[in-house]
Amino acid sequence: MRRIMVGVKRVVDYNVRVRVKPDNTGVITEGVKMSINPFDEIALEEALRIKEKGLADEVVAVSIGPADTQQQLRTALAMGADRAILVQTDANLPPLSVAKVFHGIAQAEQPFLVLLGKQAIDEDNGQTAQMLAALLDRPQAVSCSKVEVTDGKATVTREVDAGLETLEIDLPAVLSVDLRLNEPRYVKLPDIMKAKKKPLDTKNLGDYGVTEGSPFKTVKVEPPPARSKGIMVKDVAELVGVLKQKGLV
C-alpha cells in the first residue's frame, strides 16, 4: 500500500483576531471559531492530487488534539482522506512530542510521504516536519511550493529567502508545504455525508510512549505593544511635508 500521511491540526481560524486572556496565561479560545490549520489543508490537497494521479493508494489524516478535533478530521475525510487517526489529548504538546507521536504513527503506517504544514498558525513553531525527518533519519523539504513524485524519488521546489530552491530527495521523506503549492478544494455536501462512514481511529499519547508534560514553561502571555495612533494626510504634498519633517526622506 502506497500511503501518504498528512498532519491536520485544529487551530483558531485564521480570520479570528486573537485576544490575550486578562490573566496573561494564554489566549482566549472559548467560543472562537476553530479550523484546520490552513497549511494542513494545502498538505492534504497535495496528498489527494498525488493519489488522484495514481501515485498513491491511501491518504491518512492524523491529528493530535482534544476530542473536538474530530470535526477537523471529518472535514479532512470529506475533502478526500481515506481514514483518520486522532491521538486524543487536551494537552498542548511541544513540537518534539508531536514529532515523536508522528514518528510512532509513521512506523506503524509506513508512509512513503509525510506532508505537514510549514507552520501551525497558533504557535507559529515551524518545527514538526524537520523534527520528524530527523527522528526518521529521512530527507526533509521545508516550505514546498512544488512537489513532483516519481519512482522512489521526489523533486521539490522550496520557497527560500533568496527565491526558489529545488532539491531531489529519496523517498520516504517528510515535506512541509507553503501557501503557493496549491489551492485546496471545497468540500461538497454529499462528501460530508460520505465522510461520516469513513474510519476515524482514536488513540492515546501512551500508545506512542509520549507523556502530556512539556519541559517548556509558559511564564506569561501578553498582547503586543500597541502602535501609537497615526495621522491622516489629505494629499501628496502634505505627505511629503510630514516625511521631510520627520527626516525620513
Binding site: 504557535e123 517548556f216 514553561k217 509558559t218 502571555v221
Partner: peptide, 14 residues
C-alpha cells in the same frame, strides 16, 4: 511571538 504576533509568549526552558 505567537498567533501571528497577536500575542507575545514568555517561555522558560529547562
Amino acid at each position: 511571538p505567537v498567533y501571528a504576533g497577536n500575542a507575545i509568549l514568555t517561555v522558560e526552558v529547562p
